[in-house]
């Protein structure tokens, strides 16, 4: 087996201030479009038109990549939280029965209250007119 030496690039080869290439500019555009599809809370506050260097491009791309993963992870977690309830038929049925009842009773209460209020108003008006 032959061992082949691989020279390393010099440290001076790194230049984070290098202007972005057309490829990186395109990548930024892709990420901008991707970012616009994210819910507001995941979006960066970076103005992409002002990105000029590789370092600036890299920072923006990292933030959006992280945000995309975070948004998907959060969505998966919330899906997981909901999933067990859906699998238990009895619970779903119970919930299904509870909700309309509660709504109905709330409505009824509201109706009752407004009826009471209007009754009070009428009697008060009557009292005033009598005066």
């Amino acid at each position: 087996m032959t061992l082949i030496h691989v020279p390393k690039p010099p440290r001076s080869a790194v230049n984070q201030q290098r202007p972005v290439s057309s490829l990186l500019t395109t990548q930024i555009e892709h990420f901008y479009l991707a970012e616009k599809r994210l819910p507001l809370r995941y979006r960066t506050r970076i103005y992409t038109n002002a990105i000029r260097t590789e370092a600036e491009a890299a920072r923006y791309i990292r933030e959006v990549t992280d945000a995309i993963h975070r948004a998907h992870d959060d969505a998966a977690r919330s899906r997981d939280r909901q999933t067990p309830r859906r699998t238990r038929v009895i619970d779903i049925a119970a919930v299904a029965e509870d909700r309309p009842l509660r709504k109905a009773s709330t409505k009824r209460k509201a109706k009752k209250k407004s009826a009471q209020k209007s009754a009070k108003k009428t009697s008060a008006k009557k009292r005033t007119s009598r005066k």
């Binding site: 691989v6 020279p7 390393k8 690039p9 080869a13 790194v14 230049n15 984070q16 290098r18 290439s21 490829l23 990186l24 990548q27 590789e54 370092a55 491009a57 890299a58 920072r59 791309i61 990292r62």
Partner: peptide, 26 residues
């Protein structure tokens, strides 16, 4: 695709896209 900082230091672009250093790609 880019020269950039990471938590562990500076990373050099190794895609060999001009004007990135070809030896980094090697």
């Amino acid at each position: 695709y880019s020269d950039h900082d990471t938590d562990s230091g500076e990373e050099i672009a190794n895609d060999q896209h001009p004007d990135h250093h070809v030896q980094a790609g090697e």
